[in-house]
């Protein structure tokens, strides 16, 4: 069987891109290798670890469980994109202040998921946060500091 190629068009981090790629390329490989946005990481490539979490048309998804071809026409945001828009600057600062990351490999995916949590603008207990974030694996922190950081920003934002 020969390699089937496909030309994909989408917006990534606000910029339109067009590339011709093997059709089997998943979204995060596309973003990393074709576009050079290396902030989204591959931890397991079977949808368990959450390191590859990216936003597609407003929703956080596993970037390894979606073909790049499926994102035709989509608006894709990665950690680099939402860093530049400043959407979660407060959370990122809090992650640094609270040391809610160590090796940093899970962090982009963790932040992409947390961004969705914060977008709900609802009161969340620590347990709610833990439950919402439970699809993102971190081997370093033991999670406590991550919960602290998210809880603190969610509360700050709700207070206005």
């Amino acid at each position: 069987m020969s390699e089937e190629m496909v030309t994909v068009n989408m917006t990534v981090n606000g910029e339109p891109v067009t590339k011709t790629i093997p059709v089997r390329t998943h979204l995060v490989d596309f973003i990393r290798t074709e576009l050079g946005f290396t902030g989204s990481h591959l931890g397991c490539e079977h949808g368990v670890c959450g390191a590859c979490s990216v936003r597609v048309d407003g929703d956080v998804v596993r970037g390894c469980l979606m073909l790049a071809a499926q994102a035709e026409g989509a608006d894709v945001m990665t950690i680099e994109g939402i860093t530049d828009t400043g959407e979660i600057a407060d959370l990122q600062d809090k992650f640094v202040e609270r040391n809610a990351l160590q090796c940093g490999f899970c962090t982009p995916g963790m932040l992409m998921t947390a961004a969705e949590l914060l977008s709900h603008k609802s009161e969340m207990s620590r347990n709610d946060i833990r439950e919402f974030m439970s699809g993102n694996y971190c081997r370093c922190t033991g999670y406590h500091a991550i919960v602290d950081a998210i809880e603190s920003i969610n509360n700050e934002r709700l207070k206005g």
Partner: peptide, 12 residues
Amino acid sequence: RAKRAVAGRGRY
């Protein structure tokens, strides 16, 4: 190192 990691600009 934390500041660049949270921006997705770590270098692995």
